[in-house]
């Protein structure tokens, strides 16, 4: 008799669209908070993009710029290249830590909400989806802003320094490629950063989640 399960069924897995809807709403309503969380991504990606763009501007000018500018840049580049790789790696690392930290905070803050959702019938996978999606969107928006800010800043600075020759010399197609790469890196990092907090949230027993006082 103890094994009689006929009056119990299995919970259905919700379509991704539902998780999308809920995470989107949650982000929109916590807009300013989300922006602050996103700050880490913006900074990291802006930095990355500024280095990419500097590289492109320099390459373009070496090839197509005036002889004077070309030699100037070649001299400068020799010393900075290794250092730049180091800086980019560091900035990406800071990015991951920042996002994990922000997501952990967001999870801790919402223990009760997660517990409640589990009481109402949310599966662990749903909680996973919710947090990963939120992070995905934050990563996307943050990276986009970062690309615009980082790329824009360097282009402006180059224009001021080298004048109009920058524009014809600039490899625009390559720039688009780098921008896309930075965008993808930002999103991937955001999702990776959310992995640990999301798993923490998903595996929590509801009773435990509800106990946390706010």
């Amino acid at each position: 008799m103890d094994d009689e399960k006929e009056n119990i069924q299995r919970q259905i897995v919700l379509p991704l669209r539902k998780a999308l809807e809920i995470s989107f709403k949650s982000l929109r309503i916590r807009f300013w908070r989300s922006i602050i969380t996103t700050g880490g991504v913006i900074l990291g990606i802006a930095f990355l993009m500024s280095i990419f763009t500097t590289d492109l501007v320099n390459k373009g000018l070496i090839e197509k710029g005036s002889a004077e500018t070309s030699t100037l840049i070649q001299e400068e580049e020799e010393e900075s290249s290794a250092q730049q790789i180091w800086l980019v790696s560091l900035s990406l690392l800071v990015c991951v830590v920042g996002i994990t930290n922000a997501m952990l905070m967001s999870v801790t803050e919402r223990y009760r909400e997660i517990g409640t959702m589990k009481c109402l019938g949310a599966l662990d996978t749903f909680i996973w989806k919710l947090f990963l999606l939120e992070s995905f969107f934050q990563g996307l928006v943050g990276s986009f802003i970062g690309v615009v800010v980082g790329g824009g800043f360097v282009i402006m600075a180059s224009l001021l320094r080298y004048g109009g020759q920058v524009i014809p010399a600039f490899p625009k197609l390559q720039f688009m490629g780098y921008a896309l790469a930075a965008l993808v890196i930002g999103v991937v990092i955001s999702v990776i950063g959310a992995f640990f907090p999301a798993s923490q949230a998903a595996k929590m027993v509801p009773a435990e989640a509800m106990r946390s006082e706010m």
Binding site: K5, I8, Q9, R10, T116, K118, L120, G121, L123, P206
Partner: peptide, 26 residues
């Protein structure tokens, strides 16, 4: 019960009310 059956149980068989209401604020 496994995780899916437990979630179904919480969803369909039981309704919960808490001292702190626990509505989703957003």
């Amino acid at each position: 019960l496994d995780a899916y059956e437990l979630a179904w149980l919480r969803c369909r068989k039981i309704g919960y009310i808490f001292q702190t209401f626990n509505l989703i604020p957003v």
